[in-house]
């Protein structure tokens, strides 16, 4: 796939609260930003882990949900025209001869930027793998953690494991084209839309699929091709399930991922930075929010906001060493107010 290279001032890796606020702080200094996130939406952990949970320690917002905080940060960043690229994981980051950086994503997007801001929280969200011995040998051949093309599952004996929306949705969607459909879950309760749960029960009633209570403990097959699994029932007894395809849906977890290969110093899966510029061991690459570490670091959203502000001052000087940067307040500066579209 050939893609046109996108040139910009800043590529921000991660569209969580810190990445979003960095757009604002960088924007006040006339830096244009592109944000890349592995999720299909902005907000990072706030959106993926706890959209409904109240947060109580954002200054001036006595209580706010992760979802609302995300929406407000998006609104605040909007005057600066940030470009969002969702469902993309940054795979490669390399330094160019002219001092800029080239970023490549798994979806084939290519960026060239003067400055990189890593605001990746706990790393990239990736599917949780069930702890079944030897499952790696089947991955990509007969065990899949997502459905990219439904057609791949036509005439397959599909077993789905899990009790959330993904598990239920794919059970219902793949059942008509699969040769057989079975669902296994550790209890008879689901964290899914009630309508989906009802549909699944109806399919079981009509004998179009089977539902098992229990957990998979062993996989059987050869050369990556599954032939069946052993499951442990809630009564402690084991039983066999015949299948040639397994789709485990256990939600997402955060892994450092490709960041480890970018040649910047790491300490226990975190990126050490200085507390003046929040710069990494590579000049021009900055790290803010949960992913960085420094003496006294607190993993708080408000700390990330502060880091974004200081980082931006350093980032603009890195990108435009000859430009004169004056510090101004949004309350009094007409030029900042023009940028915000309020003057």
């Amino acid at each position: 796939m050939t893609q046109e290279t996108i040139s910009t001032d800043v590529v921000i890796i991660g569209a969580g609260p810190c990445g979003l606020f960095a757009v604002f702080e960088l924007g006040l200094l006339d830096m244009k930003c592109h944000l890349i996130d592995i999720l299909d939406k902005p907000g990072g952990q706030c959106a993926e882990l706890y959209p409904e949970k109240p947060i109580y320690d954002i200054p001036a917002l006595p209580v706010v949900s992760g979802q609302e905080l995300t929406e407000r940060l998006m609104e605040q960043a909007e005057p600066f025209g940030p470009q969002y690229h969702y469902n993309e994981m940054v795979e490669e980051l390399e330094k160019l001869e002219d001092g800029r950086f080239r970023v490549k994503t798994d979806g084939g997007l290519v960026f060239e930027a003067k400055v990189i801001v890593i605001a990746a929280g706990g790393g990239s969200f990736q599917p949780k793998k069930p702890p079944i011995p030897g499952i790696e040998a089947y991955e990509g051949k007969s065990v899949f953690y997502s459905v990219k093309r439904m057609e791949n599952f036509r005439n397959k004996k599909v077993l789905i494991s899990g009790g959330g929306d993904s598990a239920l949705d794919w059970t219902i969607n793949l059942q008509p084209i699969a040769e057989s459909m079975q669902l296994i879950h550790r209890r008879d309760g689901f964290r899914a839309a009630p309508d989906s749960v009802n549909k699944m029960h109806a399919l079981v009633e009509e004998k179009k699929m089977q539902f098992h209570l229990g957990q998979i403990v062993e996989l059987h097959g050869d050369n990556g091709q599954l032939t069946g699994v052993t499951a442990k029932g809630n009564d402690g007894n084991n039983y066999e399930i015949e299948c040639d395809t397994l789709l485990p849906f256990f939600g997402l977890t955060m892994k450092l991922g490709p960041i480890a290969n970018w040649g910047i110093n790491l300490h226990e899966n975190l990126i050490p930075v200085d507390t003046e510029k929040f710069q990494t061991s590579e000049p021009g690459i900055f790290a803010i929010g949960d992913i960085n570490t420094y003496p006294g670091k607190l993993k708080l959203i408000l700390s990330g906001f502060h880091e974004a502000a200081l980082m931006s001052q350093a980032a603009v000087r890195h990108a435009y060493p000859d430009a004169k940067v004056t510090f101004q307040y949004t309350t009094s500066s007409t030029s900042l107010q023009k940028k915000l579209g309020v003057a």
Partner: peptide
Amino acid sequence: REDELDMLDQNYGGE
């Protein structure tokens, strides 16, 4: 609570 059960579901919780 229900949300803890949900998380145990996602994390291969046992008895």
